[in-house]
Amino acid sequence: MSLIGERGVRRILAVTAFSAISALLLIALFILNEGLPFIFRYGLHDFLLKSDWDPQAGKFGIYPMVAASLWVTFGAMVVGAPLGVAGAIFLSEFVPKSVMRVIKPTIELLAAIPSVVYGFIGVMVLAPLIRTQLGGPGLSLLAASIILGIMILPTVISISIDSIQAVPQSYREGSLALGATTWQTIHMVTVRAAKSGIIASIILGMGRAIGETMAVIMVAGNAVKIPHSALDSVRSLTANIALEMSYATGLHRQALFATGVILFVVIIILNSFAIVVLRKRVYKK
């Protein structure tokens, strides 16, 4: 590297630092380019707020899919976030380091289990259980929420543990020396210090939940319908694209790319919101 010199290294790094944002812009450009013309032609209002989706008849209202995507993600958060964060706290603060060293890699391994495997287990185990115990078709909003909640656990746990462990030991010692119990130390000191990492883990988990496609196609049943209960079958925005893409031509195909645009925008809004919240809390500290 001495050939390039200190300034050269800085320049190279500065250029590569724009890789992610360039990727994002490139993706935005291409998706918008394919989807926006349709939205202008059909009308954003009708596209987003009409609940009739019948491509053969030229009806392209995606309101049921928007509602479904939000509900499914919310459900996954309700299932996955508390379990994940609780698990991370317990594993990093109450379990001996030697045990942790085995459990954490095991959990990280689970992040690599393909989403389709989770989806398949949802179909084989969870859906029949819901159908017989609670009613409805089984393939439902509830099934999708639970499966997605489980799927985001490794992400939430693994990154939360990293950030909890990064809290300097002196913080804990200081708190304990002042007479606080372990739990008081955890929720007043450790978790607060590790907050940005924990929230980041939840954001990443949320991203995985709203973006999951194949597992949702498998367990949600894909009915085009605004859900009235957790037992109803729903179709997420992602499922809408993947289900119909291979058969779609002309206007129908453009409408699916437009669905991609909406998904893209929803994600950007959600992320921005989460990032702002994250920043605010950091400043308060």
Binding site: M124, P137, G138, L139, S233, L243
Partner: peptide
């Protein structure tokens, strides 16, 4: 009907019906 489950191939229709006694 809006309540209809949607599957994207013959095979998945078959699996869905095979798994659900009411389908």
């Amino acid at each position: 009907t809006k309540d209809a489950l949607i599957q994207d191939s013959n095979g998945t229709i078959r699996e869905t019906v095979a798994n659900d006694p009411n389908a």
